[in-house]
């Protein structure tokens, strides 16, 4: 009986304020979509970091005949100097942080360069002599790159130690900023959604003022009075959250996996599994926020 009565109250409330309820649904939908986008962007960043950092090498470049720096004396690095660097990498203190080490001579470096930049203006001035010998070092883990750089950059015959991760950082920074922006928009929209929900509940309570007065008079418990309103807010928000979850899944499935992923085959794009993970989070946030907002909004009508 009570459940039926509460259900009826909820239904009446939703129907009576249909336009406001629709706006709650839409605002919740948009705000949670932004939340979902922000979460997906973070997942994407982590995935790309994992992907690229695993492949990012530390390049130890040796002096050529024209280089003059603290460690180079305008003579090409000797074989002993190259060997000395390799010995450092193999020594007990550094070895645990070092994976594969590959030596690249001038011919290989030239071949790699031509492969990347062949046909461009800079390729015309390149010759094997202008290339530097190098050691391609794979760090044991991405965090170890800095250690390898510190251990080798001051050794004689070493021109420069370049960490490829440093090249990737600006990309991640841009993505990170984008995700922070999405979070910012999401927070603003969530605030709007919460305020709108509490206004809707107040309006709904106001239109049922007479019933509420009688309920209080005859001794309806607070929980009985507030439950329909909280459910009302939660139902509206739930609709919005489900729409948001659906749109996040649809975007990942149709746009990212269906359109972007085939074009960028070298980059791992977030998958439908990630989206399915995000969906319940969105629904959870929507329900929680709506429930709390409605409960706070209705409190005024429960004061005795």
């Amino acid at each position: 009986m009570r459940l039926q009565l509460i259900g009826q109250e909820v239904w009446n409330g939703l129907r009576r304020n249909l336009s406001v309820v629709v706006s709650v649904v839409l605002v919740t939908f948009i705000s949670l979509s932004f939340v979902g986008a922000a979460i997906l962007l973070q997942l994407q960043i982590n995935q790309m970091k994992g992907f690229w950092y695993d492949r990012a090498q530390v390049g130890i470049y040796f002096c050529g005949p024209v280089d003059a720096t603290e460690t180079c004396t305008q003579t090409a690095a000797t074989e002993e100097q190259v060997q000395a660097v390799q010995d450092v990498l193999a020594s007990g203190a550094i070895a645990p942080y070092v994976g594969d080490v590959v030596f690249e001579d001038r011919e290989q470096a030239y071949a790699n360069f031509m492969e990347q930049f062949g046909g461009t203006a800079s390729a015309e001035f390149a010759s094997p002599e202008t290339m530097n010998e190098a050691l391609r070092v794979q760090p044991a883990s991405p965090a170890d790159a800095e250690l390898i750089r510190e251990a080798t950059s001051a050794l004689p015959g070493v021109l420069e130690v370049r960490d490829q991760q440093a090249l990737l950082d600006p990309i991640f920074q841009v993505l990170n900023t984008a995700s922070l922006a999405a979070i910012g928009v999401a927070v603003l929209m969530l605030v709007a959604a919460v305020l709108l929900i509490s206004t809707t509940i107040r309006l709904s309570a106001f239109s049922r003022k007479r019933e509420l007065g009688i309920m209080r008079l005859v001794g309806a418990s607070n929980r009985f009075i507030q439950t329909p309103f909280i459910i009302e807010g939660v139902v509206a928000a739930l609709l919005g959250a489900v729409l948001a979850a659906g749109s996040v899944i649809a975007i990942v499935h149709f746009f990212l996996q269906g359109y972007v992923a085939p074009m960028l085959q070298t980059i791992a794009i977030v998958t439908i599994d990630d989206a399915l993970l995000v969906a319940p989070v969105l629904v959870g946030i929507g329900v929680l926020f709506a429930g709390v907002a409605a409960a706070v909004a209705i409190r005024r009508y429960l004061r005795i």
């Binding site: 009986m1 001794g219 418990s221």
Partner: peptide, 11 residues
Amino acid sequence: AFTLQVIGKSR
């Protein structure tokens, strides 16, 4: 009946 419903009396 409303009075009795809201205080949880049986049908």
